[in-house]
Write a protein that binds this DNA or RNA. Structure first.
Length: 312
DNA sequence: GTCCCGAGAT
DNA sequence: ATCTCAGGAC
């Protein structure tokens, strides 16, 4: 009988409750000594600035985000400023952060916040998660990090750390399981202020120490209580079910090349011809497919059927 | 489930 | 040169 558990056992609940306070104490201490000094942390930006940092950080390492975030917030300090910007400029400013549809969704989001919410981010999860480009993770992160509310933030780092520390198992990817969600809420500190430190601490620990492949258990603040370490780190680095996404030769690479050619255009030029694009990517069928998909996404406009430009 | 990027590590 | 990593929309 190897049926996947649908909920925590009574024994697991008991063990988790015994561990919780010690983890909270040691993690908070570690956080205060090891937190990276990112510009959107420690109350130095608005809720909108926090949201921008979270959207930029989706699927992207923090170290790559910092410079973009600073330039972006300098240029468009609030939702209304971003909503009014030319879309071509927004896409260009997204630069090489990757997944440029995020930039489009962020500008749409800015439009909704500007018009429906008077330029102030809504303070409730349901309204946040309904915004363009904002899913469960980002809505929860804003509720916790920007508004200080008691919300369980769940991303892959947190799933990995909590699964290891409290259950002694690897989080194997795919969508968040009911067990993972139940666990995240059960261990979350009752006091709102403590819950924010907890969320940030668990995420930071997952990013800096409790990494997927080579966790630094020797320097982990939880090494004395971690169930995963005590069990001999069973299945460490086990293949995630998430499908591998190679890059070479994919539509993602071709779309990237097309957008890069548009971003890097000299001043005064705004279009790139299909002929020029064929020099960059000779496979005409794939190129046409990617141009169409970029247009469909709203990331480019087609000019007279022979060139592309950023949306005006 | 599949599709969206790009940089840093190895 | 190849591998690894990460949320949201559909």
């Amino acid at each position: 009988m190897t049926t996947k558990a649908r909920s925590l056992t009574t024994q697991q609940e008991h063990d988790i409750d015994l561990m919780r306070a010690a983890v909270e104490r040691d993690l908070a201490l570690w956080w205060h000594q090891n937190a990276r000094d990112l510009p959107w942390r420690f109350g130095r930006t608005s809720p909108w600035g926090v949201l921008v940092s979270e959207v930029m950080s989706q699927q992207t390492q923090m170290s790559r985000v910092v410079g973009y975030w600073e330039a972006w917030m300098n240029k468009w300090p609030d939702a209304t400023a971003l909503a009014k910007a030319p879309t071509a400029e927004v896409i260009a400013a997204w630069g090489r952060l990757g997944y440029p549809r995020r930039a489009l969704r962020l500008q749409e989001c800015a439009g909704v916040v500007s018009e429906q919410y008077h330029d102030q981010l809504p303070h409730d999860y349901e309204s946040l998660v309904a915004l363009p480009g904002i899913g469960d993770y980002t809505a929860s992160a804003v509720m916790s990090f920007a508004f200080g509310e008691r919300v369980a933030v769940i991303d892959t780092n947190i799933r990995r750390v909590l699964g290891r520390a409290f259950l002694g198992v690897e989080s194997l990817g795919g969508s968040t399981s009911p067990v993972e969600r139940t666990l995240a809420w059960r261990v979350l500190p009752e006091a709102a202020a403590q819950s924010v430190v907890w969320n940030q601490g668990v995420m930071e620990l997952g990013a800096l120490v409790c990494t997927a492949k080579q966790p630094g258990c020797d320097s982990c603040p939880l090494r004395s209580m971690c169930v995963f370490l005590a069990a001999g780190r069973p299945g460490l680095g086990e293949r995630r079910t998430r499908p591998r996404q190679r890059f070479q030769g994919t539509n993602r690479q071709v779309r990237g090349i097309i957008l890069q050619s548009l971003r890097d255009l000299p001043d005064g030029q705004s279009v790139v011809t299909y002929d020029k694009l064929r020099e960059l990517w000779p496979d005409r069928a794939q190129l046409d497919l990617c141009i169409d998909s970029l247009e469909h996404d709203g990331l480019v406009e087609i000019v007279d059927g022979h060139a592309v430009r950023l949306p005006q």
